[in-house]
Design a protein around this nucleic acid. Structure first.
Length: 412
DNA sequence: AAAACTGACAACCGCAGGACG
DNA sequence: ACGTCCTGCGGTTGTCAGTTT
């Protein structure tokens, strides 16, 4: 591994962290907070660069981290989230309290990818590979698509075939230039359908979204047990079935005091142009859309907002507000929703909009961010590699605490 | 027993974007 | 508008322990 330029200049240490370094960093951050990371190493007496310290803290020393292997529920959730969010590891991690983006990324790359491949699931669309091919063929056959766009699609497809995983989805449409007839160039930033949808969803419904996540049950219908239920050559009806198992809310998630997160319904995971979704109050949207590929499931989805008044959720986002306390916001979001429904279900409209540059503002709307207030369990983690078994997180925490206490003594 | 392989994890790199002067 | 600093993110690679040959 190379060395940070800053590390090189200052001949700073790199590589694995020693327990002593961990102790220094832990003590410093616990006592003073990190403030400006670049100043942390000096203040903490470490020969590391601030970036390295930050990473170590975030990925290992942070007290709210949950250690141990991922439960089946967590894995399934990651798969579902990945289908929606792609390689947006930080956003996925935000839905899994106590897990870091690095952890999740590693899990995906080392384990989940293989599982999906073995099941014949496309890593980009999370649909059976056979269907992906069909859809791509359909897209190619779209004679109505303008020549310029057609070229772009071809380009995208070739790009897609090169890369592995959903990152290619995220890449599709990014910074794609369309040469208009007027020679003006329109930057389609973040305008792949998927990102288009995501950005819209995350931003226009941000307030509601942040309230929903973590507290409200959701109809999770697919891949609730991907290992057990999915045949290798599962067809679309199986994969996208609405009648799938519901998420087990009495799972280890709950017992571990983790906010079970809800997320976009499964059809959104299976289509570039997601079908409708709603949040409470229910906003059913017609499902007989004309553009959604045949594998898209019928029916609408409803975000069932619980009445739970969880302070964590209200703290999750700076701007989060109670669902019932902002009728204007809600009405606006409904209008927006209808508007987006049109967009999302009519690619040509979307294209037209892009060409009119009217969607540029939409595309460039705020990037989705969700904030999770860590579960302040107070657990702190030891340096040694973990060798924990599943469903032992409680023990893990107490063991870690013991180890830490033994290693570092009392931490203020 | 030792080399080769594998999986999981940790850490680094480079880039993007925001804040600030 | 520009440059600098800082932070965050995703991709990539190094390390290590366990397993297989």
């Amino acid at each position: 591994m190379g060395r940070h330029s800053c590390c090189y200049k200052q001949k700073l240490r790199k590589g694995l962290w020693s327990p002593e370094e961990d102790e220094k960093l832990l003590r410093h951050v616990t006592k003073h907070g990190h403030g400006c990371w670049s100043s942390v190493p000096k203040q903490a007496g470490l020969e590391r660069c601030g970036k390295s310290c930050r990473l170590r803290w975030i990925n290992y020393l942070r007290p709210d981290l949950k250690r141990g292997t991922f439960s089946q529920q967590e894995e399934n959730l990651i798969i579902e989230l990945h289908a929606i969010l792609g390689n947006r590891w930080s956003q996925i991690a935000a839905q899994l309290p106590g897990r870091t983006d690095n952890e999740i990324k590693n899990l995906w790359n080392s384990s989940l990818k293989k599982k999906l491949r073995q099941k014949g699931i496309d890593l980009i669309t999370h649909k059976p590979l056979s269907e992906v091919e069909n859809v791509e063929n359909k897209i190619r056959d779209q004679k109505k698509v303008p020549k310029e766009l057609s070229n772009e699609l071809n380009l995208m497809n070739s790009e897609s075939s090169k890369s592995d995983g959903a990152s290619s989805i995220a890449t599709k449409g990014y910074a794609t230039e369309i040469e208009g007839s007027t020679s003006s160039k329109i930057m389609m930033k973040n305008c792949s359908s998927k990102d288009f949808f995501l950005d819209k969803f995350m931003s226009s419904n941000h307030e509601n979204y942040t309230n929903l996540i973590g507290n409200y049950p959701i109809h999770m219908s697919y891949a609730s047990s991907i290992d057990q239920t999915l045949p290798t050559n599962s067809n679309s009806s199986h994969w996208c079935s609405q009648s799938g198992k519901s998420f087990d809310m009495n799972s280890e998630f709950i017992s571990n005091s983790i906010n079970v997160m809800s997320i976009i319904p499964p059809t959104t995971t299976t289509s570039f142009l997601p079908t409708s979704f709603c949040y409470k109050p229910s906003l059913p949207v017609p499902s007989d859309d004309i553009s959604t590929p045949s594998f898209a499931a019928n029916g609408s989805y409803y975000w069932e907002a619980a009445t739970s008044n969880n302070s964590k959720s209200s703290n999750r986002s700076n701007g989060s507000k109670d669902l019932t306390s902002n009728n204007n916001s809600f009405m606006e979001s409904q209008v927006e929703e209808a508007k987006w429904y049109e967009y999302l279900h009519n690619p040509m409209l979307m294209l037209s909009s892009v060409q009119n540059q009217s969607s540029e503002s939409l595309c460039s709307e705020i990037k989705a961010e969700t904030y999770l207030v860590p579960d302040t369990s107070g657990a702190v983690l030891p340096h040694s590699k973990q060798q924990q078994q599943p469903s032992q997180s409680t023990n893990i925490f107490s063991k870690d605490m013991h180890k830490l206490t033994a290693a570092f003594g009392h931490i203020e």
